[in-house]
Design a protein around this nucleic acid. Structure first.
Lengths: 329, 329
DNA sequence: AGAGCTTGCTGATACGCATTAGCGCTGGAT
DNA sequence: ATCCAGCGCTAATGCGTATCAGCAAGCTCT
């Protein structure tokens, strides 16, 4: 029972050809259809509730006002507040405004062509797959900067935000700063490290990079302190509490003796509500999703691919203070 | 660079027909291909990185494996833990297992036919729209019981759960019970009230229905207490704290003097974590989503429409106790 | 040698839609 | 009467894949 209604069905019902039905629906005016015929077709369409088949249209290289969303992890996670969630909120809002529906790919990337274009979240997709998308001219936008060539993205300007925090620290008298974190290989980490190094260089202050390994902070911290470092820039927000604890264990007050700056915000909203208000910045995740959809529809509509960086909001917090005179160089 | 590699390309490269390429990829064994030819084709496929185009494939087997999800409210809400969320988790999980993608109708209900079938969440859609779907034979499944005729659904058995709690109360000596809540018009409320009334009747105990209006509990409670009610069955979980507060304001201890049973669970996980462990039941939301997808794919595949009720898990809690002897009749 | 079988492959077709060249018709101009 | 222009529509084609009937060649058995 109940096969899908096709244009052929409509055509048979109204005694016209399938082509006429298509022309009534998408006619550019180049081919004219009599008003009366047009009306008969439209009536049949309304009566049957006909809607053009997604696959048929895509095969004929037409758009469906359907945007794909690709994530490696489930879109609806079990954990309540998830890293991706704010992006998705922005994506949904903008899609609604633009009259597009969202197609969630529950598995691998091969189904992406079902949609007019795709939003690729974070690093959920490999470099080679990304290159393939570019090569095949399938419209997509990455949420989060991707270093591959010709990859359109909407990212957060982690470099600028990090540099701004470095500048603030220098302003407060800090002369020996350290970056604590891997600094790679994800673009977001590279950006932070580059922003850090560049800003330190520009300000003429000493910069150290401590490629922290989980739990190895205990070993690294004394070395940094011995080197006269007065401000620590932490790549991984989730480790903020740990770092402060280690510093206190070494007899340093935060921010009395040492300042701590976190390069981002903890992922989970409610979980472990930081015991203090750390100096940090905020990734504009909702806006990024919003802009990504915006940009994707432009590309689908034939516009040029762009690479956008949005500014992060600085959160002053309480862990960046004037460098203590006794540690000052 | 540019075009996608197709089976025709592979065929030309290896000097076979397009059909042969397809057979190498999906051959059921009915048609045999020489080992050597097969290998040549496979080599070419590996060399070019050919991947079958979903669009072509779906056109050929005339199923696009797209399931729609219709909600009136945003699927990705701003609030962290949302009522719909557990349903969606289940829906996504099962869709992935079945190889279906999910289409979110952010643009409204008029495009529902883009999908092979739809999951309709809760009361997000009106009776008339629902009737239209049935009349037009568009496959769909409602998550949550719907009283309209021929509407397939996966619901929770609120009636049975309520009846079980009534039975438990009677077992503990309660003889005068009250249902506090509207008892309609939503099916879920009707079910609760019916389950309550039926179970009270069967047990031969007195049943009162107090059609509470928000904030009017203050007025209703003394009346109920005066009538000798010892157990209150509350329809709206969010009001549990209020109700208990009112009871205490009237000098009654919960559950010392009066028992309170909540017919469901608070929507939000984290928000206002109830100050006490109330006796209640739990709607199997994740499983409902799961089963709805399951059922929908069956219907799309030509199976019969069914109406399913899943059992709710009872949570003993601490607010249902032996009826105090002084109030006992 | 001819019938009958097996093996290995291809041609044709269908799926739903968009697009374009072009056909038949009417009516006005020549 | 002939020609042309304009109108209203259709036949045909392509998109990428799956599937099936059937063909040609080689083999075995009588």
């Amino acid at each position: 029972m109940g096969r899908r209604v096709t244009q052929r069905d409509i055509a048979r019902m109204t005694g016209v050809s399938q082509a006429t039905v298509s022309l009534v629906l998408n006619g550019s005016g180049a081919v004219r259809i009599a008003q009366e015929t047009r009306q008969r077709v439209l009536d049949a369409i309304r009566a049957t509730g006909y809607v053009a088949d997604v696959v048929g249209r895509r095969l004929a290289d037409r758009s469906n006002r359907i945007l794909g969303v690709f994530t490696y992890e489930p879109v609806f996670p079990s954990a309540t507040a998830d890293f991706y969630h704010p992006f998705l909120v922005g994506i949904e809002q903008r899609a609604e405004q633009l009259g597009c529906d969202l197609l969630l790919f529950t598995s691998g990337p091969h189904r992406m062509r079902l949609a007019d274009g795709c939003i690729v979240l974070g690093r959920s997709i490999g470099r080679d797959e990304l290159a393939r998308l570019v090569a095949e001219h399938h419209p997509f936008v990455s949420v989060g900067r991707r270093d591959a060539p010709d990859v359109p993205y909407v990212g957060a300007d982690y470099g600028a935000a990090t540099a701004a925090l470095v500048a603030a620290a220098v302003e407060l008298g800090h002369r020996r700063l350290a970056y604590v974190g891997t600094g790679g290989p994800a673009e977001s980490h590279l950006d932070r490290l580059r922003g850090f190094a560049g800003a330190c260089l520009a300000a003429g202050v000493s910069a150290t990079h401590e490629p922290r390994r989980d739990g190895a902070l205990d070993g690294a911290v004394p070395r940094l302190l011995a080197a006269g470092v007065t401000a620590l820039f932490l790549e991984e927000p989730a480790d903020a509490a740990d770092l402060v604890a280690v510093l206190r264990a070494h007899g340093r007050d935060v921010p009395g003796d040492v300042s701590v700056v976190v390069l981002g915000e903890p992922t989970r909203a409610g979980a472990t509500p930081a015991p203090f208000d750390v100096t940090r910045f905020r990734t504009p995740r909702r806006e990024m999703g919003w802009r990504a959809v915006d940009h994707l529809t432009e590309i689908v509509g034939g516009g040029p691919a762009q690479q956008t960086l949005l500014a992060c909001e600085l959160v002053p917090g309480e862990t960046l203070r004037t460098a203590s005179s006794k540690e000052r160089t």
